[in-house]
Design a protein around this nucleic acid. Structure first.
Lengths: 345, 345
DNA sequence: CTGTTAGCGCATTCAC
DNA sequence: GTGAATGCGCTAACAG
């Protein structure tokens, strides 16, 4: 209950005021770049503030009704899944870059429990801990959207606008990338492909699956199967085994993440198939894992840090101006590495 | 009797006071479980608070000089390195579990720039954003320790006490694990081993290296080389190539992380060596990557989430009581998977 | 235009 | 149980 003993007293505006011989109001104007003080006085005040190392008390500002100068991010995944999920760290790094330029901090919560996630949003907002949040892993019929709208917490949704229910979004056009992937496979002569996808409830899973199916249909290719996984090694292995044991197995498989792609590679090899000669493999979201395998995996690469940076930029704009427009980030680019080859007749 | 809560405005203690007909002071006592109000009044106050959805304003509490109810964590790595670093996400997940039980939040910063890290600590503390921090990636002669002590920011250091300069630490006994690893290799008949280590400035790198060297010496084994890396694929590849091109190459290599171990596996294979028959490989810190390779890699596994939980627990104790004792977490256990074999004569 | 004064916001706590 | 002070920055209303 009792706060720890603080060392030196924190410098406050009052101290700057007494040192500079003006009122605390003038100091506040000077320090915030607002009119009401002469340039000369302002310079003197700023010099003193820097000298004694004044930093605005976030508590006081937030209490006054101002910004908490922080945004929140809940990562709603199992910790064990996150271990091999390169997306979030890169995404966070991008967010941070923007936040630090604006003096904002990031509050993070890692929990897979939906109730806790919702409670966290409520609590962060009520307790004035954050000014807004970034919502990731958008789901189909995502119930979090209603909560956020209901309590009025500013939010930027990372995901396809079609599933965001009107919220401001930052999204990468996965449908476009999916088309490009199918097109590439088509050019290589593949006519029977499959998709080892992520969890069905994720909006981006659905976007990818639908786009691939549509593109296959238009090109007269067969989409042999869309198997949903939890991105894990085990699920990827199972999915790939199922696909390869079909009477007419696919000649190319697109995996929604790197781990399942590696699992697929292993399954193919132990089934006596050569990659890419007998089976082409394409991984969604590039990572060092894709480089390390044999053969290295071709991948759909996004600039994840700049994706995070965009999300942060849009959210800050939303917080500061009450409105913001959705932004489409660059869609994924196909990086060829050697796991794609001409389909064998 | 009870008017509906005004829309758009957070319920405050003042509102509860007016509704229950007592002073705001009494409400505060009631809500915080302190003496000063009758049980009957307390019950009535709590009921009203719940009804109108009151949540304490963190800003007001922090302003009052109380806790910010948040702790900070700076991850001082390059974002690109973090992509394949399973440690931090698992560590954070463990931290969160403890924090959420105590109503604390986590402030995160990801930056590889030392200046920014130091500025962040200063700012978090000055602005009352956090009550304490967890310091990871302890370095030899770590200058962050002096800063933290200087500004009086409570901190728990994750790392070997020998390098923590008296700060409270939570640490896993890497020396012990290193000994166990060398002992295991010794039993398998290896007499020439090598260590592909992490960055030399990390305290845990030094602890591991020294322990391995010492243990090798005692067992009459040769430590052919300690090569420092930045944990990257490229560095691991280079290190392994260097080791395998020695006149008398090692028969076993210990890698400080999973990525360099996989790089080593690849190098060995392309050099025509069989793993584990010609070369044994051991990875520090287990991960799904170790399971996915062929052969799957034997690894030194720690319970990282509980490591993080310990750090959080100790830090909260330090914050709330002004003192805390260092805690040694369980040291890593050797998980055998098939990348270790008897040395060939 | 330059600057001052007097609250506000919210929970906590001490003297009464 | 109460009233009032406290912590800190911001800003409307006001004065020179």
């Amino acid at each position: 209950m009792t706060a720890p003993a603080r060392h030196g007293r924190r410098p406050t505006i009052a101290e700057i005021a007494s040192r500079s011989g003006v009122s605390s109001g003038a100091v506040s104007y000077a320090l915030n770049g607002r009119p009401g003080v002469s340039d000369e006085t302002r310079a003197r005040i700023i010099a003193i503030a820097e000298e004694i190392g004044w930093v605005p008390s976030n508590a006081a500002r937030a209490l006054r009704g101002g910004a908490a100068s922080a945004i929140g991010l809940v990562i709603a995944r199992e910790p064990s899944d996150l271990g091999v999920e390169p997306f979030f760290m890169a995404f966070i790094a991008g967010i941070e870059q923007v936040l630090s330029e604006h003096g904002f901090a990031l509050m993070l919560q890692v929990t897979a429990r939906k109730e806790q996630e919702l409670a966290t949003y409520r609590n962060w907002w009520s307790a004035r801990r954050v000014d807004g949040i970034i919502l990731t892993d958008l789901k189909v019929d995502d119930e979090r959207l209603a909560l956020l709208a209901g309590i009025g917490l500013p939010a930027v949704v990372v995901g396809d606008p079609a599933y965001a229910n009107g919220a401001t979004t930052v999204w990468s056009d996965d449908a476009h990338a999916a088309q490009a992937a199918v097109e590439r496979l088509s050019r290589l002569g593949h006519t029977r492909i499959a998709h080892v996808a992520g969890p069905a409830q994720f909006a981006h899973t659905r976007v990818r699956s639908e786009a691939m199916r549509r593109e296959c249909h238009e090109r007269g290719m067969a989409m042999l199967g869309e198997i949903n996984t939890d991105y894990s090694l085990a699920a990827g292995t199972q999915a790939c085994e199922d696909l390869l044991s079909l009477p007419e197995p696919p000649t190319a498989i697109v995996f929604d993440n790197d781990v399942t792609a590696l699992a697929g590679l292993r399954v193919a090899r132990s089934a006596g198939l050569r990659v890419p000669d007998d089976l082409s493999i394409l991984a969604w979201d590039d990572s060092p894992l894709c480089e390390i395998s044999e053969p290295p995996l071709s991948a759909l690469r996004r600039d994840v840090p700049s994706y995070g940076a965009s999300a942060a930029t849009v959210l800050l704009h939303l917080i500061q101006h009450g409105e913001a427009v959705s932004v489409r980030a660059d869609s994924a680019q196909l990086v060829e590495r050697g796991s794609l080859a001409q389909a064998r007749p």
